[in-house]
C-alpha cells in the first residue's frame, strides 16, 4: 500500500532522512518508532505530500508522491502530532468542512459527520465548539476528520501523544476498528511499548535511517519494548552514569535514593551502587552497554532486566 523508495530529505546541511526504503503492506497497522528528531514526522509529512523529498519517491496506494500529489491526497488521511481546530466550528461542522474540502457532495456531509462522530464516540458532542474538547476528545475528532473522505491510508503522527491511560486504550481500540475496516495505518510512536499491542508491523528509525523493519514479532525479537535494566556495580557512579547516558537505546537513568541521577549528582553510597536504566534499545545495544561499562573500569556486579 505504501512503498517508500530511497527517500531522502535535507534542510540546508542537516539530513532529516537518509535513503529511507520501507514497505507498508495493505491493511496493516505499521508503527514507526524513534525518538524525537529521528525523522519519523518528516517521513509522514512527505508521504502526505506536505513536504517534497530531496531525493527518492514513494508510492501511496499506487500514486507517486512526487508526480501525483493530488491523487495521493485523495487516498491519504493525515493527522499531525499537534493540530488545531477552528474555534468557530462545532465538531459536526469541523468534519463537514473537511468533507467539503475533499469534494464530498453537500447532501452527504451532515450524515457523514454524524456517522464519523459516532465512530469516534463523539456524537454526543456534535454541537460542541471544537476548541472546547479535552485533548483526548480532540485527537478522536482529528481521527474522524481524516476519515471524512474515506481514505485507504491513514498517516497518524503520534496519535497516542499526551493521552491518559484510559484514552490510550480507547485510541488503540479505535485504530484496531479502523484496521478491521480495511484501512492501512502508518503511525509513529516514541517507543515500542506504545505500539506492541496494536501494530502488525513495525520499523525503528534513528537519525533519519531505518534501522530495523518487519512484522512486529520479528522486530520485538530483536528490539523489545522499553524496559528497566538494573545495574549493580562498584566504582565511580558518575562515570557509569555518563557511559550509560551516551549508550544507544537508553531513555533514562535513575539512581534509587537520588531524585535524578542524570543530573550528575555525586554518588553517596560507598561500596555497592545501583542504577536503574530505562532502556528501549535492541538486545545488541544492551550487550554493547555492558561491554562499554566493563571496558571503562566499572566493576559490574549484576546487569539484569527487571520483569
Amino acid at each position: 500500500m505504501i512503498e517508500v523508495q530511497a527517500l531522502s530529505k535535507s534542510y540546508g546541511g542537516r539530513i532529516a532522512l537518509a535513503d529511507v526504503s520501507l514497505v507498508v503492506p495493505p491493511g496493516s497497522i505499521f508503527g514507526l518508532v524513534g525518538p524525537r528528531g529521528s525523522g519519523k514526522s518528516t517521513l509522514l509529512k512527505i508521504l502526505a505530500t506536505l513536504t517534497r523529498p530531496s531525493a527518492g519517491d514513494a508510492l501511496v496506494a499506487g500514486a507517486s508522491i512526487v508526480d501525483e500529489p493530488l491523487r495521493v491526497r485523495r487516498q491519504v488521511g493525515y493527522l499531525p502530532r499537534d493540530f488545531g481546530v477552528y474555534p468557530e466550528q462545532t465538531c459536526a461542522e469541523y468534519i463537514a468542512f473537511f468533507a467539503a474540502c475533499y469534494g464530498v457532495p453537500p447532501k452527504a456531509r451532515a450524515a457523514l459527520a454524524e456517522d464519523l462522530l459516532q465512530l469516534v464516540d463523539l456524537y454526543h458532542r456534535r454541537d460542541t465548539p471544537s476548541d472546547r474538547l479535552t485533548p483526548a476528545m480532540r485527537r478522536r475528532l482529528g481521527i474522524a476528520r481524516v476519515l471524512a473522505h474515506d481514505p485507504q491510508v491513514l498517516l497518524l503522527d503520534e496519535p497516542m501523544a499526551e493521552l491518559d491511560p484510559r484514552a490510550h486504550v480507547e485510541m488503540r481500540t479505535l485504530l484496531k476498528e479502523l484496521s478491521s475496516m480495511g484501512k492501512t495505518i502508518l503511525l509513529t510512536a516514541p517507543n515500542m511499548a506504545q505500539i506492541q499491542d496494536l501494530c502488525t508491523h513495525a520499523a525503528t528509525i534513528q537519525a533519519g535511517q531505518i534501522t530495523l523493519a518487519g512484522p512486529l514479532e520479528v522486530v520485538l525479537a530483536v528490539r523489545p519494548p522499553h524496559r528497566t535494566i538494573a545495574v549493580k556495580f562498584l566504582g565511580d557512579a558518575r562515570l557509569a552514569i555518563n557511559l550509560i547516558k551516551s549508550a544507544a537505546g537508553v531513555v533514562d537513568v535513575q539512581m534509587p535514593g537520588e531524585p535524578d541521577a542524570s543530573s550528575g549528582a555525586p554518588a553517596t553510597i560507598a561500596l555497592l551502587k545501583e542504577l536503574r536504566v530505562t532502556f528501549d534499545g535492541a538486545y545488541a545495544d544492551a550487550s554493547a552497554l555492558l561491554r562499554s561499562l566493563m571496558h571503562n573500569g566499572v566493576q559490574v556486579v549484576s546487569f539484569a532486566e527487571e520483569n
Binding site: 506536505l50 491526497r73 491519504v76 493527522l79 499531525p80 493540530f83 477552528y86 475533499y102 476528520r145
Partner: peptide, 13 residues
C-alpha cells in the same frame, strides 16, 4: 499559529 494549516494543505485544495 493555530496549527490548522497542515490539515488544510493536506486536502486536494
Amino acid at each position: 499559529e493555530n496549527k490548522t494549516f497542515d490539515a488544510l494543505r493536506a486536502t486536494p485544495l
